[in-house]
Computed example of a mutant assay.
Amino acid sequence: MNSNFCRGMPRAGVRAPQASSITLAVALLFPMAASAGEYFASSFAELQSAIAAANADGDATATIRLSADVTMPGGAWSIGTPTKPITLDTNGFVLTKTGALGNYATSAAGPLTLNGTYTVAPDTAGGTAMLISGGGQAIVNGTVTGGNTTVAGSESGAAISVLPNASVVNNGSVKGGSGTNSANGTAGVSLSTNAKLVNAATGTITGAMPRVARPAPP
């Protein structure tokens, strides 16, 4: 008996699935990951702007990558305070602090993950490479080196100073700066009141050895 049904065509009264239904089914089976913004910075001003933009973009998390070596000026108070999880990646470059301020701020809602290389420029009194403030958590996955002093007998700088109520998880390499003729190198990490430190299995924290100044040749 012949039939008017053509192979590949839907039978009368049978509705083909709509594209929107298929899309919904796929979305339910394979939910998308939370959105994450990505920013690039080639100067300290651009880094501060990137953190401000990331806080406001509506994405769940953000990553900021350096596209050049960046220097944090001596008078800078902070890189900015994250209001959500932000990863700062030096991306093969170096972020260098030059003054006594320069906080790497955190917040309860905004842990800060630090990948790459961080240091402080040598000066007459050494210097701390990274001040962790804000009462939140910083996660160090890179290398942080404290400042070397340029004055004989002066104390060098710690790599990280954790300010009150903040915490650090170290998965990377943290080393205090070296002092010229000082009796001891500086500790890798200093902790303030109610500050916390967790050194993970992959983390190393060391104090630097003193550097002995050589006399000038006659």
Rank of each mutant, 00 (worst) to 15 (best):
N171D: 10
D57S: 09
L95H: 09
D89G: 12
N148L: 03
A138C: 06
V198F: 10
S67P: 03
T206V: 15
G102W: 03
G74N: 10
M209T: 14
T119I: 01
A16H: 13
D123Y: 01
W77S: 09
R11K: 12
G80H: 02
P85Q: 02
P122N: 15
G13W: 04
A27I: 07
A100F: 03
L112I: 04
G203S: 03
A138L: 10
A50I: 04
T90D: 12
P17E: 09
G99V: 07
I139A: 12
D69Q: 03
A34G: 13
G92R: 11
N103S: 14
G176S: 05
I51M: 15
M209V: 14
T90V: 13
R15L: 12
Q137I: 10
S49N: 09
G134F: 01
S182H: 05
L24C: 08
A201D: 15
V94Q: 10
T150Q: 12
T71A: 08
T98V: 07
D123H: 08
Y104G: 11
S167Q: 08
D89Y: 02
E46Q: 14
R214V: 14
R15K: 14
S43T: 15
S182W: 07
V14E: 13
S107I: 13
E46G: 04
A200K: 12
A45M: 00
L66T: 11
G136S: 03
G99L: 13
S78W: 04
N199R: 04
L114H: 07
N165I: 05
L112V: 06
P82N: 06
A12I: 12
D57K: 07
